[in-house]
Amino acid sequence: MAEGVEGGRADARYLVLHSSAVRITHWLNALAIFIMIGSGWRIYNWEPLFGFQFPVWLTFGGWPEVSQHWHNEQGLAGALQWHFAAMWLLVVNLLIYLVYGVISGHFRRALLPIRPGEIVRDLGAALSGHLVHRVGERNAVQKAMYVGVITVIMLTVLSGLSIWKPVQFQELTAAFGGYDVARYVHFFCMAAIVLFLAVHLTLTALVPTVLPPMITGRVGRRQ
């Protein structure tokens, strides 16, 4: 038995690439983010910050016509219900992940340190097609993106709290520049997460072998 990449057990046939804690929190987070963004877009549509709305089929919270039956309106209540239910999944799962990441050494092993020089080097290599993908190793650009998106998710939660409770958490709301500014911060954090997802999903599509290990945790040694 040898140490897996994530410190788990492995043998001659496979490496443990992702621990079960990372896999479970990853997929729960994916579910929570999916619901939060979908319902958030519906909520946004009721009072757009900019001159556009999200197509309703991309939003989450029940069919508008069914909503007329349940909620006497066209779908805001359903979106709010989902948003304020899924926030618990997002936050509890995030806290578990953060505590696990620190205590298990996952952050130290997998995401840190991030050196600006390495990011520039790896980004250049990636764009010119010379970046070597080694199983179980994240390059500096990946590390920066993962640390970045985790930070943005935390900012999204904090700006969301400041919109939800501008009286009880008024210091937090003030730190974001007040209620109206906090709404913009919340929006741009969402936009940053969507941008991350676009890259994350594109790369997974380009290198589909990275997907099975996020489900099983393992990768064969021959790969």
Partner: peptide, 28 residues
């Protein structure tokens, strides 16, 4: 405010194939 949006919202219903993606059936 709502009637303004009604046409817009109904417009989206023609894209029924994407209903699962939007989770609408799940909610209702």
């Amino acid at each position: 405010h709502k009637t303004d949006r009604r046409g817009f919202l109904k417009g989206g219903l023609s894209l029924g194939a994407l209903s699962l993606l939007s989770g609408c059936d799940l909610t209702d």
